[in-house]
Design a protein around this nucleic acid. Structure first.
Length: 724
DNA sequence: TTGAGGCTTTCAACA
DNA sequence: AAAGCCTCAA
């Protein structure tokens, strides 16, 4: 093994494979390199079998990246190293060892939306009004309790109760979980909590796993919550070969219960732990690091430390003020094209970061217009799209007929003449006879079933039979079959709109996804497929041209960027109330976390950083005049170059009627970005012409004449595109 | 009783 | 864009 690529401290961290080790790794200090080399060293020199090495990171993206780099280093053997996210690791443990604590071999995994459906049912059953009580508030309260692993040993939710709830929260908490159990479903937090419970209570399972894995590595340790901390601790209890890597400056998940205390607890749990600090930064040039550290040093609560740039001098950090969000996107795209021409950068060298997913659309539009291939990580996830969720719901219900949330979603999609009343009858009868809904309707125990029920039962039972033959029958063929037999494809084909076209394409993508999956997991069942995709959040590349597949501009939230690096980084939306986000500015802790997030963003860059802010930004909430982010003013002026860019793109999405030459220019009239008589494209109704503009600010109404007739929309909710 | 159409509301970050 | 609620025609 070639140790020449490591510095002294990195080498120490690689070699210290026996016993506990705590690595403080600053941004760009070669953390991933340490983990991959450590893995290679364990396999190559220490003769540890690859499957005995357990590594967890935080995001799918980071886990994928790490796996790739391990394989690069050790060859195909690297495939058997266990590298996953905490959640995926938990699913693995529960699926294979959880039966002792009552976890079935297959369970549905519920995301936020599914979770809220269940909470809503709970509220209704308690005669509480879901309109008056915020579902997301309850969901986040439930998560918070579980993130902290508070009730793992039984315990009473009332003990943890904030008394400002106007209703019986403990009962909601209990009822929610009892319903989840009867649905045979776990939410994301449950995955972790149940894994802890499994490791705590089932000594046989625990010992098996403790023997199976001998060496543990936990990446992004500063972002683990208490449940994750316990999982790591319990697994490593026996071998004590546990290496955690973290950086307090990059802690950006406190809203998910991440607790910096875990680092302190680590030193308490393992007083003999070795401690290594990596402070040499190999990633970024001097100006980038100076900018990053001048921002982060405004945080009061932090261990003071200074990263040293190995790379040395480079281009200054650039701050661009754009007139509005279109100017912002235009500037980004222009800069990309410019740098490609002048400095030979490739598409894949660029990444555009933003604070919230909603900001991605304008960039996508501009990139498309310039024919620059791009890839969006996360965001409106592929699996969040309606048509995908519908088909997945079919698959889930086929795999788990207790999954009533999925049942409700699909029973009448496509329309089978089953409405409110029939559903109420089904559910009442099921409750009365104390039998699952599926059993009730499939055995014909429902009085006077409407015709649609028959159809539905036929479709599902047929698919259930076929699904048992997977993998002999191909998974992808099966998925395709469900799309057809359910009538879903026919329904979309019947609509025959631009929108239904694209939904059909998305379903094709789903079938392709299943095809890829069956090829890399030869003996995978439907159940495995479903569980794996429930944990998947990063969208696959919309770029289908194989030539561009690996050479795309990357778009993602700053959160998603953690653990990654790019030659050129654009940090966009650098405005007060956007970044830092408006929901964080009220508390000092909130601001400090946003600042760490900003630090993470800047330190992803190897060669160039562009900070971009818009003077005016339009969002769902209206039109806002924005102040540049406070983080920009924290960077000394003498290391930053300032430019201004105004969009003067009339044919495209710029504000019309403006020359955009001065900063702070506001739309003069209503603030609409359209003008009367202008031609526009609507995704559903096709081409049309603006007839009338009424109202102002966030209440602009557009009347548009389509070939099919006139329609009126609220501008801020309508995805219109301008046509030349 | 269903389902289509209109109107309203919602939108922070990840698994 | 999507989902929930309401009204109204069939």
């Amino acid at each position: 093994m070639d140790f020449n690529k490591l510095n002294e401290n990195q080498k120490k961290a690689v070699l210290a494979t026996d016993g506990p080790l705590l690595v403080f790794a600053g941004a760009g200090s070669g953390k991933t390199r340490v983990i991959t080399y450590r893995t290679a060293y364990l396999i190559g020199e220490k003769k540890v079998p690859p499957f005995s090495i357990f590594a967890v990171t935080f995001t799918n993206k980071a886990a994928g990246e790490m796996k790739k780099r391990v394989i690069d280093l050790v060859g195909p053997e690297g495939n058997s190293v266990f590298i996953k996210t905490f959640h995926a690791a938990s699913v693995y443990m529960l699926r294979n060892f959880g039966q002792g604590i009552g976890i079935p071999r297959y369970f549905s995994i519920y995301d936020d939306t599914d979770q809220q459906t269940v909470i809503k049912e709970v509220l209704l059953s308690m005669r509480l009004d879901p309109k008056k009580i915020s579902l997301s508030m309850i969901a986040s309260k439930i998560s918070e309790i579980k993130d902290r692993a508070e009730l793992i040993d039984g315990g009473d939710p009332a003990r943890l109760l904030p008394d400002y709830f106007s209703f019986n929260f403990p009962e909601v908490y209990r009822e929610y979980h009892s319903r989840m159990a009867s649905l045979n479903a776990l939410d994301f937090n449950d995955l972790l909590i149940k894994a802890v419970q499994l490791l705590k209570t089932d000594s046989r399972a625990r010992e098996t796993m403790q023997r199976m894995w001998s060496h543990f590595m936990i990446d992004e340790y500063q972002d683990t919550n208490h449940a994750q901390y316990l999982i790591a601790k319990l697994l490593a209890e026996r071998s004590r070969n546990i290496c955690v890597v973290g950086d307090d400056d990059q802690s950006i998940y406190s809203w998910r219960g991440a607790d910096i205390k875990n680092i302190l607890d680590f030193e308490r749990d393992y007083p003999d732990a070795g401690v290594i600090t990596l402070e040499e930064n190999y990633r970024s040039t001097e100006p980038i690091l100076t900018a990053a550290s001048s921002v982060i040093k405004n945080n009061g609560k932090r261990k003071p430390k200074e990263l040293r740039s190995v790379k040395g001098d480079g281009e200054p950090v650039v701050w661009c003020r754009a007139n509005n969000e279109y100017g912002e996107a235009e500037y980004v795209v222009n800069t990309i094209t410019g740098l490609k021409r002048s400095d030979g950068f490739k598409n894949r060298d660029f990444s555009v970061f933003y604070r919230t997913n909603a900001q991605s659309r304008v960039f996508e539009d501009h990139l498309r217009k310039e024919n620059l291939p791009y890839r969006v990580v996360g965001g409106l996830k592929f699996y969040d799209r309606k048509e995908i969720k519908d088909i997945i719901a079919y698959l889930r219900f086929i795999a788990n007929p207790l999954d009533i949330v999925s049942f409700l979603r699909i029973i009448n999609v496509p329309a089978r003449g089953i409405g409110r009343t029939t559903l109420d009858r089904i559910r009442a009868a099921a409750a009365e006879k104390n039998m699952p809904e599926w059993l009730l309707i499939s055995e014909g125990s429902l009085d006077k079933p409407p015709k649609g029920i028959d159809e539905f039962v036929k479709v599902i039972s047929r698919s259930m039979e076929i699904s048992r033959k997977i993998p002999e029958i191909k998974l992808s063929a099966f998925v395709n079959d469900v799309i057809n037999e359910s009538g879903y494809r026919a329904m979309l084909e019947g609509e025959n709109t631009t929108e239904s076209e694209s939904r059909l394409e998305n379903l094709e993508e789903l079938v392709n996804g299943a095809y890829d999956y069956e090829n890399s997991n030869r003996d995978a069942t439907l159940e495995q497929f479903l569980q794996d995709i429930s944990l998947l959040t990063t969208e696959e590349n919309p770029e289908t041209d194989p030539e561009n597949r690996d050479n795309c501009v990357t778009l993602m939230t700053v959160h998603n960027a953690k653990g990654l690096e790019f030659p050129v980084v654009f940090l966009t939306g650098m405005e007060e109330d956007t970044f830092p986000h408006r929901l964080s500015v009220d508390t000092e802790e909130g601001i400090e976390e946003e600042r760490r997030l900003c630090y993470v963003g800047i330190t992803r860059a190897m060669e160039r950083v562009y900070l971009v802010s818009a003077d005016i930004r339009r969002s769902y909430a209206g039109v806002f005049y924005k102040q540049p982010s406070r983080f920009i003013s924290e960077i000394p002026e003498n290391i930053m170059e300032s430019v201004f860019h105004a969009s003067n793109d009339f044919s495209g999405n710029g504000f019309s009627g403006q020359d955009g030459s001065r900063s702070g220019d506001a739309p003069r009239d209503t603030g609409s970005m359209f003008s009367v008589k202008e031609r526009v494209m609507h995704p559903k109704y096709g081409p049309g012409r603006i007839e009338r503009i009424e109202g102002e600010g966030d209440n602009i109404k557009l009347t548009i004449a389509f070939t099919s007739g006139k329609k009126t929309f609220l501008e801020k909710y309508t995805p219109l595109e301008k046509m030349p």
